[in-house]
Design a protein around this nucleic acid. Structure first.
Lengths: 118, 118
DNA sequence: TATCTATATATAGAATGACGATGTATTGAG
DNA sequence: CTCAATACATCGTCATTCTATATATAGATA
């Protein structure tokens, strides 16, 4: 269908996506890229030049932690969430929901997503 | 509560918000700013330096149309949606929903918004 | 009267961050 | 042997939001 999401749209929620993917299980950069692409039906296709700098930043913020795997055939840098990172994921998810609700309320009823009855 | 949404988060959806507000009724810049602030419980507070350039861009893209009101006490530039703008609003809303669902599916169940049962 | 706040629009410059391009290196398939 | 896929990294560009600044008027307040 419609191809990739606009990069501007994804700004500000890339951290959330990456933290969410890492919350499932530890991953290395390349696999995060693939998982995101698969899980989004190709609509999210993070470039290496986008992903790796973000991972470095998240690590410098102590939200994730890395470890080189030298044992396997390919050199891979595995990442996992820290406790702080897990908390941050929860915060970001909450903010995200608030934002979604906000947009929701701005949209004309016909264009708004159906929400569960109270 | 939590104060304003991060500007990065709103990148890419400001057009959608502004088109949605204008879909309700014609507005001038300053009133768009206020309406957005009110409707969002102060969490969206567009600065003039953000809003006006966007309005100019949307007009250059023929999504909105402007008209100066000289008659009233204050000089105001009224904007309204064009037919193209209305179509764009619908497209953007659809893309937005797809994106929300995408993020939704990435989040661990506990952190995902409740969605209506199928 | 003077001044301050709110209203109303506009633009230039700084900061941010995703992308494209490019580079390196290794593995496995043909 | 070559090529595609895997795997990580960095630099320059570009789009967009913010801060700061500018102008101008209406109405309230001192």
């Amino acid at each position: 269908m419609t191809d990739k999401f606009d990069s501007q749209l994804m700004r500000g929620s890339l951290d959330l996506m990456i933290l969410a993917i890492l919350d499932r299980e530890p991953q290395y950069g390349y696999s995060i890229q693939q998982k995101l692409r698969e899980a989004s039906a190709e609509k999210v296709d993070l470039k290496a030049g986008t992903l790796y700098p973000i991972l470095h930043r998240l690590e410098s913020e102590k939200l994730i932690r890395s470890k080189w795997d030298e044992s396997s055939a390919r050199k891979r840098k595995w990442y996992e969430l820290t406790k702080t990172g897990h908390k941050r994921l929860q915060q970001q998810a909450q903010t995200w929901h608030a934002y979604v609700n906000c947009i929701q309320s701005l949209l004309p009823p016909k264009l708004a997503l159906p929400v569960p009855a109270p």
